[in-house]
């Protein structure tokens, strides 16, 4: 029911209670009117002719009631709109300005999440990953939400309510996780054929673990060691893959698809479609359209040797 374990839980619960009270009152009134109408029905005589006199005598009362009713609805709706506006602003301002926060920019694409950790004072520390969020427990994270194609919705039920990502607009959300764990996020606005396979792995960890993760993500990819890995590296650099993917420390720097620099450190492949691992990698690289039909990575058609090589290289991207 609530906004979860996040920062906005209390505010959200208050808003929910308000909505509940107002709607229950209105429901009770509607039912009362219905019951009154039922018991006082009449105005049609046995022979089917309307009882004009009886109705006319009640007209002024009826009119007063209707005006009152309309006013009540208007006031109720305006009040609720105002309350949710205040709650929304309250959530946005809930962190004191002097408190340290993490800035994360999440860009939704059909059908995956592009995640950027932005450090305004040290841009060299910025990192780019995909389909996962790591958050230190107890530290507010300011998430900026964008979309590059259609409307998506960012939803981590355990941490906060939904927030839409709208092309051409910037939305924001503050997450304040107060216990560690692994949670699932999910796109919550139908965005196309693979909407169901658009998940986000959220790991809330201690500050030390988070710092380790951040440091590891900041490193470039290692050079390929074995001949097989080297062959895979050459394929990735010279063929289709580098037109869409980026691998830090190499010439591949396209942003059409997810950043692959630390691919193997993620929990899942292709936005929660497959578990991370050698089997998943083989399946994905061999035929992404078979695994996730309609996603934006094409079937490239590698032969068996190329597939072994590319997978061996991808496995070095820890």
């Amino acid at each position: 029911m609530s906004g979860g374990d996040g920062l906005d839980g209390a505010l959200f619960n208050r808003l929910f209670a308000l909505f509940l009270i107002v709607s229950l009152t209105m429901l009770a009134l509607v039912l009362a009117f219905l019951a009154a109408a039922w018991f006082r029905r009449g105005g049609v005589r046995q022979d089917g002719v309307a009882d004009e006199n009886g109705r006319a005598s009640r007209e002024p009362l009826l009119r007063a009631l209707l005006i009152g009713w309309t006013a009540l609805i208007a006031i109720g709706l305006i009040g609720l709109t105002f309350a949710s506006f205040l709650t929304d602003r309250g959530m946005a301002d809930a962190i004191p300005p002097d408190r340290r926060t993490i800035n994360i920019i999440v860009t939704a694409k059909q059908f995956w999440w592009d995640v950027n950790y932005a450090f305004d004072n040290e841009p060299s520390k910025n990192i780019r990953t995909a389909n996962e969020l790591h958050l230190p427990v107890g530290v507010p994270a300011r998430v900026t939400l964008k979309s590059s194609d259609v409307i998506h919705s960012f939803w981590i039920p355990n941490l906060a309510g939904k927030q839409d990502l709208i092309p051409g607009r910037v939305n924001d959300l503050v997450l304040l996780p107060n216990r560690t764990g692994v949670f699932r996020g999910q796109c919550a606005e139908f965005c196309g054929i693979q909407h169901a396979h658009m998940a986000l792995d959220v790991t809330v960890e201690s500050r030390a673990q988070f710092a380790n993760w951040l440091a590891a993500q900041g490193k470039p990819a290692p050079a390929p060691a074995s001949p097989l890995q080297k062959a895979g590296y050459l394929y990735v650099m010279n063929r289709e893959c580098s037109g869409c993917h980026a691998i830090a420390g190499t010439a591949a720097n396209a942003t059409v698809g997810p950043d692959l620099t630390h691919l193997m450190s993620r929990r899942s492949l292709a936005a929660g479609t497959l578990p991370m691992g050698r089997a998943g990698l083989y399946a994905w690289v061999a035929d992404p359209q078979g695994v996730k039909p309609g996603n934006n990575m094409p079937y490239v058609g590698l032969d068996a040797n190329e597939l072994h090589a590319v997978t061996a290289y991808l496995e070095t991207l820890k």
Partner: peptide, 8 residues
């Protein structure tokens, strides 16, 4: 050729 697939 080799940078995008034939289908693309």
């Amino acid at each position: 050729e080799g940078k995008i697939t034939e289908q693309e």
